[in-house]
Every structure is written in C-alpha cells, then in structure tokens.
Design a protein around this nucleic acid. Structure first.
Length: 588
DNA sequence: TGTGAATGTCATACA
DNA sequence: ACTGTATGACATTCA
C-alpha cells in the first residue's frame, strides 16, 4: 500500500522524513503522502536546470574518474573473485525489471527527470566502458537476469555513502559496474517505452528483501572489490549528509545526478524512484523467477556473502550472513511487528516503536534467528552523524547499514581471506556490549539526534537540558533521547547493582568464613578451658583429701569425711566444718 | 539440546 | 512532578 511511493518533496527535509516515517508506519496522516510533496515538481525543475549546469563539470571530471575506475577494475583482477561479465542482452526483461520500471514510471514527474538523467548517464558513460578487463561484480555464471536485477539494488547501497563532494566519483564507481550500466540503460529504455506502470500488488508492497539480498551481497562484494579502501573512506564521513532513508535501500537512481548536486537535491530528485524500486524489487522476487537467480548469486563462489562487509560506503549491514533480518528491520516500516521475535510488541511508550526503533524492534533484530545485528554492529563501530540525516524508518536501516559498511573495511580483509571461517565469532561477548551501545547509537543516528549517546547518558542534568535546548528536536527525537538516557543510566545502575550484589555476596561469604573460624576458635577455647577446669578440680580434690587427711582431733583421731568437711573463705582461711552443722548453717 | 553466566532492559519503589 | 538510583524479574546471547 505504501509501497507506491508518491513523489516526496519536503517543506523541510525533517518534516518529510517524519512524514515518511509515519507513512511507513501506516500512521494515518489524514491525507495522501503526495499532499506533502507538492514542492517536489518545483524542485525537480530546479534540479533539472542545475543538472544541466553540472553536466559540463562532470564531463570534465569524466576522464579522471575513468582512471579511477580502471584502477578499481585492476583491483578486481587481483582478487580474482570476479570474472568479466558479459553484458546481458538489454532485451532480456524479467518480471522484476518490468516491475521496477513500472514502479519507476509511476512517478511521472520523476520519470521525466530520471530519463534525462539516464540519457545523461548513457552519454557520459557508454556501456562499452565497463567492458574493461575486469568487470567487477558479477561472475560469468550469473544469469543475465540476475544482472538485470542486481544493478538496481546494489548500486543504491553503495551509492548512499557518497558525499556530495565525492558524489561524482562514487557515481563513477557505480557506473563501473557493468550490471549497473546495463540496468540503467534498461531502465531508461523501459521508462521511455512504458507509459503505464505496473501497479504493485500487496505482496510487492510488502517486500521481503531477504530474497534479493544475496544478490545484493554479491554486488556489494563486487563493489568492495572495485573500490579501494581509501576511496571508500572518502564517502563515509559525509554520507550522513545526504543519506536518505530510502537511499540506503534504493537501488540505482542515485547515480546520474551530477556531482555538483547537493544531497538534498539528490534525494529529492530520486527519492521517490528509489523507494519505488525498492518496493518493486521484492515484487520481482515474489515472481519467483528472480528468486532462483538470486539464489544462484548467493551461491556464486566468486562472491562471498561476507564480502559485503567490505562494502564500503556505509550503506548496508550486508555483513550479515542473513541479510533478511536486516531488511526486515529496514523494512520495519512495512511490518514492524511482523517478526515473530518481537519480544514485547507495542510495549514501547517512547515512540521509538512508532518509528521502527523501538526496543522491541531492536530486540527483534537481535533476536531474529540468524540475525547478526549485534555482531555486525560490533564490527561496525558507530559513527556519529550530523544533523542532516533523515528521520525516516528506512533511514534507520540505512543508518545501521551505513555503520556496518563503514566498519566493514576493517573486518573485510580477514573475512575475505578466510571464507570458511565464520565471521563475528571473536570476542562476541565483548562486542556484544558494544553492539548494545551502538544500537542506541544507531537509533540516535537514524533520528539524526545531534548528541552522542555518551553525552545523552552521561551529561549532568543541567548540561543535558542545556544541550537539549540548543537543538530543536521533534517528539520522536526527544522520546528516543529520553529512552537512551534512561536505558544508559539504568544500564550503569544495573551494572553497579550487580557489582554491589556480587561484592555483598563476597563480603557475606568472607564474613561467614570469619564467623566459622570464630566458632571453631571458641569451641577449641571452650574445650581447652574445660580441660583446664577438670585438671584444676582434680588438683583441688587431691589437695582437699591431702589436707583433710592431715587433720586430727583432740584425741589424735582423723576426722571422718562423712561428719566433717573443709571450707575456705575468700581470704584463704580454711575451716573444718561439721557436716551436720554445716547443713544446719546452710538451712539457717 | 540443555544450561549457566553475562548482560541488557523493564517495571517499580524510593530518595 | 521530575529525575536518578536501586533492584527484582525477565529476555537474550553465548560458551
């Protein structure tokens, strides 16, 4: 339903992002999404003009870019993972292609500008270019249909991270992919040829990205191969500036915008298409035809699924063995609670959930079988983004993907070298905590919260409030910040609590041991005293008998023990007391 | 596959 | 009323 994305232009990027989020969340906005996009066409015109101007500049840069491309291709040859791809016949049209085109054609205004872009691209980057020695991505074994499908998907992911400044370069990167070029050409043709569009079915509108992710991975890895790390790195920092929630998911449209384009313009121009394409892809996959192809791609030896990690410019979480989960998440706008792993659906009160960033959602991500969220978050340390990011749902996924991607280059080499070795298995426990933290960071980034999680959690109340007042934050952002702060503090509190509990336990155990020792000591002392007392009594008895035996009466006779007894006073004086008399005395 | 440990998160009470 | 802290309970992940 929401898959048929209407052209979305914004009064402000933030507003539109919010609208987009709500839209994805099926929140009733009371009006069609296009209502919010009225400025789109106007901007499109502006973009068109700007593009023309920028075209010249881009032409100039073309040669340099081609050089870079060649270098990248060289890298591919070194890896040996990629086999030169034979360009599939453009006439080869798959369901997915049609769907994409249809979806693409859905937006009349967009279609026009896009056509121009495509033409421009075609002119700028002839198909024969990519036909260079080491066509990057796809293995020869990959079916042509796959090529058709994949370019639409992958390029978008790689594209996202591009910085405005390096956009043209990144674009060249993308263009270096034969599949992409083909796809672009096909789409252009289709766009020109197809007046109508294929209305997406419900299925299509509720895509299961997992189906084509393998292919994505494939391309991603290819892309990785193509792009030198340093080259990739150039995109990471600024990617946030131009990131559109959909961009991360979208496939190919990005490219033809001139390098001079500002990120906003870029997004505005292509966002609708991107989104449409994203949605359309699943439909294609649903068609079943593509599924097999994708499966083939996934199984394609040259490309290791984990190569995605190397996927640089911060788009995708492709590092995940099972991209499906990630997409499910990114797809959260479509079906947040659909996941069976949702720990507590509808539990969130803070609004995260409504934006697909709810805890439950996160849990879903983590908990999903095969989900590597925590793992890849570990691998891809958080990068704090600027304010320009979007607040849309898909944005979140894109943000995560970006992070993952950004981190990928680091882990990539190892994993790439050892395919058999399962990734993300080292220091998981340690990484896990990091991943947890980064999850909130991801949320914060997704909602373009201008504060770091660390700041949010650790700032004193006054400083925190001051910081909050410095930024204009919407409801969702405020809610998320509150949750992050609450969770962060509670996390620390829980850690302290457990620490104290353990300390208490240790202390009690120590005290118990001490008391046991004391008890033993006292028992031993008691025993000793008893022994001593017994000895003293014996000595006293002996002395008594000795003394008593020495006593004699007037007649020289010994006293009878039955009639007399010895008693002594406190001063040591001893008396011989008759027992009867003593008894009488006692009685008295 | 079951289990315990570690950790995060939530709910709640309290200061 | 709001915020922070403490803690029990539960969930998740991993070895």
């Amino acid at each position: 339903m929401m898959e048929i994305e209407m052209p979305k232009m914004h009064q402000s990027q933030q507003d539109m992002d919010l609208i987009d989020i709500l839209w994805r969340q099926d929140v009733d906005l009371g009006a069609g999404r296009e209502v919010f996009d009225f400025s789109f066409r106007q901007k499109e015109v502006e973009l068109r003009r700007q593009r023309e101007q920028e075209e010249e500049k881009r032409q100039q840069r073309l040669q340099d870019q081609e050089k870079a491309l060649l270098a990248q291709l060289q890298l591919d040859e070194e890896t040996g993972e990629f086999v030169p791809r034979s360009l599939p016949a453009q006439t080869n049209t798959t369901n997915g292609e049609i769907t994409q085109n249809g979806a693409f054609a859905e937006h009349e205004g967009d279609a026009l500008s896009f056509d121009e872009c495509m033409q421009l691209l075609a002119e700028t980057f002839p198909l024969d270019e990519p036909a260079e020695p080491a066509p990057p991505c796809l293995d020869v074994s990959v079916p042509p249909s796959t090529d058709l499908m994949m370019p639409a998907n992958i390029p978008a992911f790689t594209q996202n991270p591009l910085l405005p400044g390096s956009l043209d370069q990144a674009w060249m990167e993308l263009l270096s992919l034969p599949e992409l070029q083909q796809c672009l050409n096909m789409q252009m043709q289709d766009t020109l040829n197809m007046d109508g569009f294929v209305k997406l079915s419900g299925e299509a509108q509720n895509p299961s990205y997992s189906q084509y992710l393998p292919g994505m991975d494939h391309l991603s890895s290819a892309q990785t191969e193509v792009c030198p790390p340093e080259y990739i790195n150039t995109y990471d920092g600024s990617f946030s500036n131009m990131v559109s929630p959909n961009l991360s998911q979208m496939s190919l449209n990005v490219p033809d915008v001139g390098a001079e384009f500002r990120p906003e313009e870029f997004n505005e121009l292509f966002y609708p298409e991107m989104e449409t394409k994203v949605n359309s892809c699943p439909l294609t996959c649903d068609g079943g035809h593509m599924v097999n192809q994708l499966a083939e791609i996934a199984n394609d030896p040259p490309v290791n699924p984990m190569d995605l990690q190397s996927f640089s410019p911060g788009n995708f979480s492709s590092g995940k063995p099972e991209p499906m989960v990630e997409f499910a998440d990114s797809d959260s706008g479509l079906s947040l609670d659909s996941s069976p792993h949702t720990s507590s659906p509808g539990k969130s009160l803070n609004g995260d959930e409504s934006f697909g960033f709810s805890d439950s959602d996160s849990e879903e991500m983590d908990g999903s079988p095969g989900s590597m969220e925590s793992d890849y978050t570990e691998i891809f340390p958080l990068v704090y983004l600027t304010d320009e990011a979007q607040a849309s749902l898909s944005e979140k996924s894109s943000a995560e993907q970006q992070e993952m991607k950004a981190k990928n280059p680091k882990t990539e080499p190892v994993e790439a070298s050892g395919f058999s070795k399962p990734p993300f298995t080292k220091d998981k426990q340690k990484k896990r905590s990091e991943a947890r933290l980064s999850r909130d960071e991801q949320r914060a980034k997704a909602l373009q919260i201008p504060l770091t999680v660390d700041m949010i959690i650790n700032l004193p109340v006054d400083d925190f409030n001051e910081m909050m007042s410095k930024h204009q934050l919407n409801e969702a952002q405020l809610a998320l910040i509150r949750d992050i702060r609450r969770r962060g503090k509670n996390k620390v509190a829980a850690q302290n609590c457990r620490k104290r509990k353990m300390e208490n336990i240790v202390g009690l155990e120590y005290e118990l041991d001490s008391l046991k020792e004391e008890k033993e000591r006292l028992k031993k002392e008691k025993s000793e005293r008893s022994t001593s007392l017994r000895e003293m009594k014996n000595q006293l008895s002996t002395l008594y008998q000795e003394v008593f035996g020495m006593l004699r009466d007037e007649q020289g006779k010994p006293f009878s023990p039955n009639e007399y007894s010895l008693q002594h006073t406190a001063d040591g004086t001893v008396f011989l007391v008759p027992r009867l008399k003593k008894t009488l005395v006692k009685n008295n």
